[in-house]
Design a protein around this nucleic acid. Structure first.
Length: 191
DNA sequence: ACTCCGATTGGCT
DNA sequence: GCCAATCGGAGTA
């Protein structure tokens, strides 16, 4: 099990995103080690990507997107949910990958407690669901995933058979092209 | 100061 | 399938 380093994250966002599939997201909190395998992600680039928070330059919220790759970018949305992203690209160039779904691997009992459900399908299959299951909130915004022991991503050698891509169009609020990648056939992919 | 609205979810029809 | 909840960020003035 090898933790991903700076080299992994500081590359083209569209290259990093699909390669995060199959990796393990590890969260240590309250004496628990919560682990989930990443099965769905979405890439967000800079000015050229109208769907990205960074499309209109740097603001207080999105500033971490402009920092080095390998940091946690966590923000609050819809008045209810925290969404977790990992930053990409070298310092100065904005980029991030939203983690949209996990396959629960370890610490499932605690995830169930955090989510208020025992249905494994509803535990971490959604960007707002997985942050609640893993107790990820804005306190973790900006932390370095390459050195933190509370939150990091590791490679256990698992190889994803088939990666699917859905440049989704027609999201609420307008027509937008999305760079969504997911593990084909995995039951924990959101929908 | 004010308005608009979203990288969502869960509940109800 | 439809829609309310809920609130901070971002844009406009």
């Amino acid at each position: 099990m090898r933790r991903l380093g700076r080299r992994f994250y500081e590359r083209n966002t569209l290259e990093v995103a699909p390669q995060l599939l199959g990796k393990l997201l590890v969260r240590r909190v309250d004496g628990w080690e919560l682990v989930g395998r990443i099965v769905e992600v979405e890439a967000y680039r800079g000015r050229d990507d109208p769907a990205s928070h960074a499309s209109r330059g740097m603001t207080p919220r999105n500033q971490v997107m402009f920092r080095e790759g390998g940091l946690a970018y966590v923000y609050f949305t819809y008045g209810n949910h925290y969404l977790f992203n990992v930053t990409t690209e070298p310092r100065g160039r904005p980029g991030a990958v939203l983690v949209r779904a996990l396959e629960p691997i370890a610490g499932v009992e605690y995830m169930m407690r955090n989510r208020g459900t025992r249905d494994p399908r509803l535990l971490t299959s959604g960007p707002g669901r997985l942050t609640k299951a893993l107790k990820i909130d804005k306190r973790l915004n900006g932390i370095d995933l390459t050195t933190s022991n509370e939150l990091f991503i590791a490679d256990d050698g698992y190889v994803v058979e088939r990666v699917a891509r859905s440049p989704r169009i027609g999201v609420s609020g307008g027509t937008r092209r999305k760079w969504r990648f997911y593990v084909e056939g995995n039951p924990y992919v959101s929908r």
